[in-house]
């Protein structure tokens, strides 16, 4: 199987999982409780649709596709930033003072990234807007990776009991950390076979990893408010966490 075919297969597996998770969330009434996941998945699927449409109509080398790709990339990174902010809010649900501080911090990060991205492009005055989008989304991407790590450390420090939130954050962490490592390797090993392999296999795998982790968190980890009390001696009474391990004949 060629690299491109494998990459396409992995990408399509990711898209299918995203659509499946979205349907699962909507069908099981999670649309309100986990609105940030629904929002991110909807955005991601819309981005896939927009890119496919532009690619089909204008071709890979066209300026329309270039603009569409980077604009949708920016939208996706902004959506991920919203998800991170919303997870911060969940983590601070019992500490409003902390949330006030975090909200200020998130706003400051967004403003700082905008300013840094703008000033780093002062030498390219002809294509400021398009290059700004590229620079801004890359900076925001790395900032989101750092913020996700801070979020995870905060959940540990504040002893947040929400196991589901922990897993959702880990999924997001894989989605950010994997491609960030891949991009850095891509930069360091320019033209090498290794960098091509990273692009072909590793990026779609990280996407699949995040969706599977989210799927697991949503379907197998009980809500904090609905943690069942264990009953002894009956399989029906197994915790929701463990029930998924049963294979029904």
């Amino acid at each position: 199987m060629s690299g491109i075919t494998a990459s396409n297969l992995l990408s399509y597996a990711g898209y299918t999982l995203e659509a499946g998770l979205l349907v699962y969330l909507l069908a099981h009434g999670y649309a309100k409780r986990l609105w940030e996941l629904v929002f991110y998945l909807l955005m991601s699927l819309s981005v896939i649709g927009a890119r496919s449409y532009t690619l089909h109509h204008y071709g890979l080398g066209s300026s329309q596709y270039w603009n569409c790709y980077w604009t949708t990339d920016l939208l996706l990174v902004l959506a991920a930033f919203v998800v991170v902010a919303s997870f911060f809010r969940r983590a601070c649900s019992e500490n409003q003072e902390m949330w006030q501080f975090v909200r200020l911090l998130l706003g400051a990060v967004l403003v700082a990234i905008t300013i840094v991205s703008f000033f780093s492009l002062s030498s390219h005055k002809d294509k400021v807007f398009s290059l700004f989008i590229v620079q801004f989304s890359q900076n925001l991407y790395f900032a989101s990776l750092v913020l996700t790590t801070l979020l995870y450390l905060m959940t540990l420090k504040m002893e947040v009991a929400d196991e589901r939130l922990g897993l959702l954050v880990c999924g997001l962490g894989i989605e950010f950390a994997g491609p960030a490592a891949g991009l850095a390797l891509f930069y360091l090993a320019r033209g090498a076979e290794l960098s091509r392999l990273v692009g072909v296999y590793f990026f779609p795998l990280c996407d699949v990893g995040m969706i599977l982790t989210w799927f697991y968190a949503v379907s197998r980890v009980p809500d904090l408010a609905k943690v069942p009390r264990p009953t002894v001696g009956r399989v029906d009474g197994t915790p929701a966490y463990a029930r998924g391990n049963i294979s029904h004949f």
Binding site: T149, Y152, I174, A177, G178, T213, T238, A242
Partner: peptide, 20 residues
Amino acid sequence: MFFFYIQTICLKILRQEFDR
């Protein structure tokens, strides 16, 4: 960070409680 998150997911799965 990537391996840290993978390990954390595994540890969270291992922390599942069984009723017996």
